[in-house]
Design a protein around this nucleic acid. Structure first.
Length: 725
DNA sequence: GTACTCGTCATTTTT
DNA sequence: TGACGAGTAC
């Protein structure tokens, strides 16, 4: 393929972004503006034109899914081995770095990764052994404290101590650090921190990577945390080009550390002279986009951007006022039925809500109506209890020092190792400064040391693990997993259970997962990851797998607004448009909480291609109590002209004051210039803003504009020196 | 070891 | 309301 072939269908802004010379740039990519396309085409273009070799490309994404998607698209454009490129999540890339340089990073090559669950159980165990009151210091808080410190790049020694409480937190952090180091395990935050320390302290290594990665591309840049930004800055150095793609209006993860302010910082620190806005939307019709534009214009903290489409106006946004949450659900069900008659595929219909608890009523109504549906959320494959048990056996085979894995399965399935016995093993390990496995072996092998426990459980366990290690030695990964499932008694345990028999299926699925993994990765064994088993365990920790939900079949899609980011549907229902729910009341306590809620709403609206429903309920069952709701303020922020109330009036009827020119969607000034709701404009005095209302015609035509700096103003077109942006 | 009760709590979530 | 964790009783 010639470079021209994949540049052909790009619009001018996309083309400019794709073909940008070697310099740092910010691409403000609105919803549905072809962001992934730009990113992947740029990589393909750079390689194809010989500006960089695959090995010189570093691309960071936020999810594994996005990384995979990017690789697939690139390899479909170019016949290259993607292995040379570094494409992955921050954590995935850090893992790769640390495996390659484990010695310099002071880690065992086969270090294991703790997911959040594992981290919490390590903390609980640690606190118990230190006799720390978990009422005064809830383990969840402790993990938050540790992750937070790491996110700021702080080791336990660096944490500022203000009082006894923070002293205690710091001490736990220090003990936790030691413990992880001893066990050869690393948590998510540690992956980042450790690799940052590695690069920042090891000058030759840093120079090596800076010389290598000429082109660094970052997806979803608005979701980077402060530390991730620092990491990028470190690896980019002075001379490399960072191509950051993001949308500040879609920043909805501040609560977990995303810092959209990185965009501004990036502009100044990387001396960015090129900001390209991708504003043409290829997804939604203009009523939907205009609503989104006007809504988001109420946010003050913006870089500014306005979506437009060539797709036509489309339908008005339907607004439904329900008496109760049940009514609301019933209304949605009825509409879905009607849509089905119109031929809309069920999988093209999404029901979005702010919080998971809201899905219950909807599910109930769908179920009663026999409409198939899929709920996204809940546990993921590698987070399931039975899968984690099986993985714990694997981890023990790979690394006997993994105390956490040992504790997970020493008595599962039960083999007569009670809590007392476990305590004795822990005590023996602590006294002698050895791992739990070593302590257990003492007991098992009748080696010198205290006699632990009274039963045969511990020796049996030791023998089992040793047998597993021996018997799986010559097998491939899938066979190892399969062998372990039966030899450990896991399968037998679940088969015998009345309530948990369905877990056997997931265990069998784990064998499939291992086989798939083997097929995909085995041919690509590299020096940085020589051990297939550890590679698989890493994969399981870093990539928790699909959210459950029956794949493939036609079904209505239910999910939170957060989960819907990046997706699109023919029809979208946004339910629960009530104050307290959307915007969520909890968000009011947060810094810039309301603006984030508005962005959330913006994301939700821009998921719809053709049809959008907003519904709210006057009463709703919440926490076992009936709550009476008021329509969300966001409804009022959307121009009435774009809305079509389905039943009740949207607002309380206002006393008709003085006569007002009828509101319209568009007006023309006498010069013939057309103005429409949602349009970006600029005024010599008030600066940039967005049109939120249009009234009248001819010489009386006027518009209401929400200016970024000076708020809402009503302007007569005849006099105002307004110009389109 | 399991089955039960009681009390607590209640956004959003990826790695 | 209902899910989950801790603690207790058999």
């Amino acid at each position: 393929m010639t470079p021209n072939a994949f540049l052909e269908h790009l619009n001018p802004e996309q083309l400019a972004a794709v073909t940008l010379p070697h310099q740092s740039a910010l691409i403000l990519a609105g919803a549905g503006s072809g962001k992934t396309r730009v990113l992947t085409t740029r990589i393909a273009y750079l390689i194809q034109t010989g500006q960089v070799s695959p090995a010189g490309v570093l691309a960071v994404t936020f999810t594994n899914k996005a990384a995979k998607e990017m690789l697939t698209r690139i390899t479909s454009m170019l016949p290259i081995n993607p292995r040379g490129m570094w494409v992955g999540t921050f954590h995935g890339l850090c893992n790769r770095l640390l495996r390659t340089h484990h010695r310099e990073a002071n880690l065992p090559q086969l270090f294991q990764i703790l997911d959040s669950q594992d981290q919490l159980s390590v903390i609980k165990r640690l606190m118990k052994s230190l006799n720390i009151d978990d009422e005064r210091f809830p383990p969840k808080q402790v993990s938050y404290f540790i992750n937070n410190a790491k996110e700021q790049g702080l080791r336990a020694n660096d944490v500022e101590v203000l009082d006894d409480i923070s002293l205690q937190y710091r001490d736990i952090y220090a003990a936790y650090e030691q413990q992880c180091q001893r066990e050869g395990v690393v948590d998510f935050a540690e992956l980042l921190l450790r690799s940052y320390e590695l690069l920042s302290r090891n000058e030759p290594l840093r120079a090596h990577y800076q010389a290598r990665f000429k082109y660094i591309l970052v997806d979803e840049f608005q979701d980077t945390s402060r530390f991730q930004y620092a990491w990028l800055k470190c690896i980019a150095g002075k001379d490399n080009a960072v191509f950051a793609v993001g949308d500040d209006d879609q920043s909805i993860y501040a609560f977990r550390g995303a810092h959209a302010g990185n965009m501004q910082t990036f502009l100044s620190e990387f001396a960015v002279s090129k900001v390209i806005k991708l504003e043409q939307n290829y997804r939604s019709q203009s009523n939907i986009l205009d609503a989104a534009n006007v809504l988001i214009s109420h946010n003050r903290e913006r870089l500014g951007k306005n979506l437009w489409t060539a797709e036509g106006t489309g339908e008005p946004i339907r607004v439904y006022c329900a008496g109760s949450d049940h009514d609301e659900a019933q209304f949605i069900v009825d509409e879905i039925r009607a849509l089905a008659n119109e031929g809309v595929a069920q999988s093209q219909i999404a029901l979005l809500y702010r919080s998971n608890a809201q899905s219950r009523v909807l599910e109930h109504a769908l179920f009663s109506a026999a409409i198939p549906y899929r709920v996204y959320g809940g546990l993921r494959f590698f987070e399931r209890q039975e899968v984690k048990h099986a993985l714990a056996y694997l981890r023990l085979i790979a690394n006997p020092a993994d105390d956490n894995a040992l504790l997970r399965v020493i008595n599962f399935p039960t083999r007569g190792v009670g809590s007392r016995t476990i305590e004795q093993v822990q005590e023996a390990a602590r006294e002698q400064g050895i791992t739990l496995w070593q302590a257990a072996c003492q007991k098992g092998g009748n080696a010198p040391g205290k006699n632990i426990g009274s039963g045969k459980g511990v020796p049996a366990f030791v023998l089992l693990i040793e047998a597993l290690r021996r018997d799986t030695a010559g097998l491939d990964l899938a066979e190892q997993v399969e062998h372990l499932l039966y030899a450990s008694g896991l399968v037998a345990h679940y088969q015998a259970s009345k309530t948990e028999a369905d877990r056997v299926e997931n265990l069998e699925e784990l064998v499939n997962a291992a086989r798939t993994f083997l097929n995909e990765y085995d041919g690509e064994r590299t020096e940085e990851m020589p051990d297939t088993l550890t590679a698989f365990l890493t994969h399981a920790a870093l990539e928790a797998g699909e959210r459950q939900a029956g794949e493939g079949q036609e079904a209505v899609q239910l999910m939170t607004v957060h989960a819907a980011k990046g997706l699109e549907f023919h029809t979208v229902f946004i339910s629960g448009m009530e104050e307290g729910l959307c915007p969520h009341e909890q968000s009011m306590f947060e810094q810039d909480g309301l603006e984030e809620e508005r962005r959330l709403m913006y994301v939700a609206i821009t998921r719809a291609r053709k049809r959008l429903y907003l519904s709210y309920a006057q009463s709703r069952m919440l926490h076992g109590q009936v709550r009476y709701g008021v329509p969300s303020r966001f409804l009022n922020e959307i121009p009435e002209k774009l809305l079509k109330p389905i039943n009740a009036p949207l607002k309380q009827a206002e006393a008709p004051a003085e006569w007002e020119a009828p509101r319209t969607l568009r007006v023309e000034s006498e010069s013939g210039q057309a103005w429409r709701i949602g349009q970006n404009v600029t005024h010599p005095k008030f600066g940039p803003g967005v049109i939120i209302q249009c009234r009248g015609r001819g010489p009386d035509a006027e518009v209401e504009v929400n200016f970024r700096q000076s708020g809402t103003k009503r302007l007569a077109l005849q006099y105002a020196k307004l110009s389109p942006v």
